[in-house]
Computed example of a mutant assay.
Amino acid sequence: MERNLAKAAQYLGITRPKLIDLMREKGLLNERNLPAYPTRDREYLRIKDGQWWHPELGMQYSQSTRVKQAGLPWLAEQLGLEMPEIPATPDRRDVA
C-alpha cells in the first residue's frame, strides 16, 4: 500500500506542509517535492508518474511522491516523529 504525502502526513499526525518542510530539512525531498535520492530511498519512497489529456493544451504530465508501507516507520525515524500504535489484528486461525 502506498500513500501520497497528504495521507502519510495524516497518518503521522501532522499536516502535509509540515511533512514537506521536515522532509526538505532532512534532504529527503527536492524543490519539486520529489525524492531527492530516488535510488537510495527506493524501498521507502517512489515517484508516481501521471498523465491526462487537456482539451486545449494536449497531453499533460505530472510527478508526485508516494510513501510505501515500509516508508512510514522509516520516515517517522528520519524526522524524529512518533509512530502511532497500530492495533494488533487478531489471527483468524486462533479459534476455540
Rank of each mutant, 00 (worst) to 15 (best):
R24F: 01
L22K: 15
Y44W: 14
E31H: 11
D49F: 08
G80V: 07
T15P: 10
P73F: 11
N30P: 13
D49Y: 07
A96H: 06
Y37E: 14
G27E: 09
L22V: 00
L22Q: 12
M83P: 02
L72W: 12
V95D: 13
D91R: 15
P35G: 03
R66E: 14
M83Y: 05
P35A: 01
T39I: 11
L22R: 15
R16D: 01
L72Q: 04
P17A: 14
L79T: 03
I14M: 14
A9R: 02
L29Q: 04
D41T: 07
Y44C: 00
P90I: 10
S62Y: 13
R40C: 03
A76P: 14
R92L: 15
R92M: 13
K26L: 12
G13S: 07
L5F: 03
M59S: 02
Y11Q: 07
R66P: 05
D21R: 14
L75Q: 05
I86D: 14
L29E: 11
I47W: 05
D41V: 01
D41C: 01
L19N: 14
E2H: 12
P35S: 03
K18C: 02
M59N: 02
H54M: 03
W74T: 02
G80C: 10
P35L: 00
L22N: 10
Y11P: 04
K68N: 07
N30H: 08
L28H: 02
T15D: 07
P38R: 09
G50L: 09
M23W: 03
K7I: 00
P73G: 05
L75A: 12
R24L: 02
M59Q: 05
Q51Y: 09
L81S: 05
L75R: 06
M59F: 02
P87E: 13
R3Y: 08
L29W: 06
L19Q: 11
V95H: 11
P90A: 15
P17M: 13
N4R: 04
G71N: 07
P84S: 04
T15W: 00
G50E: 09
Q63A: 10
K18D: 15
G80W: 14
E77D: 13
G80A: 07
Y11N: 00
A8I: 05
Y61T: 01
P84R: 06
L45T: 02
A36G: 11
L45Q: 01
I20S: 15
W53V: 04
A96T: 12
R40E: 15
T65Q: 03
G71I: 12
P55M: 05
Y37S: 07
A76W: 12
E56Q: 01
K26A: 15
G58P: 06
A70N: 12
P35C: 11
P35Q: 08
T89W: 10
A76K: 14
G27T: 09
I20H: 11
L79R: 12
R40I: 10
Q78H: 05
A88K: 14
L5I: 00
A6F: 00
A96P: 15
L79A: 09
Q69Y: 02
K68C: 03
L34Y: 08
P87D: 12
